[in-house]
Amino acid sequence: MKYRNNFLREVEANVEEGEWVKRCMQCGVCAGSCPLGPHWEHPPQEIFMMIRAGKREEVLSSDSMWMCTSCYNCIARCPRELPITHIMHGLAHYATRLGLVPENQQTNKFAQKFWDNLSKKGRVNELKLGLSLYFMNGFMEGIKTSLKMQKIGLGMWKTKRMDPMEILGGHGCEDTSGLQAMLKKASEIEAAKKVKV
């Protein structure tokens, strides 16, 4: 319901640091400080007001909080000391849980690739992660980007910043199966959490 407290309460109950949203005084400092501000449809200040105005669908299916790069400019400057960055990620996470992320959301897609890469062996395989990013939006684009980055790749190889052999599986942590078991348990716990409305 519009301008009633129900969505605010939902955010407080489910979103990391959500109880801070009501404390925003709408000064706009965060919106003015965000390096990506001009590209957001709804800068943080506006998102907080939308939550208070009860705009549930608009907020959760928004692209905006996915734009945050965790630069922490806003947190450093907010006169009310809101942990804005964390709230942005909290909202993104909550939207993911509810399956409300807009389709083909780039940050969301890359985040998934990163997770898949990392969770396999407990170590980030940079070569594979890089390539999967190049090919994230189709084969042709992947080829194009790879060609464009060729020189940099060779340079990194020469200076031993990149090991081409990593493509064949790559290194991992000591107890990979133990890690897998831990992650499985964690995702079970997460799934069991109910959305509190």
């Binding site: 407290n5 605010l8 009501k22 007001m49 208070r52």
Partner: peptide, 14 residues
């Protein structure tokens, strides 16, 4: 006093 109003859940709308 304003902050406490916010903490108590009063909605402030411009």
């Amino acid at each position: 006093f304003y902050r406490n109003g916010q903490n108590k859940g009063i909605t402030f709308t411009k």
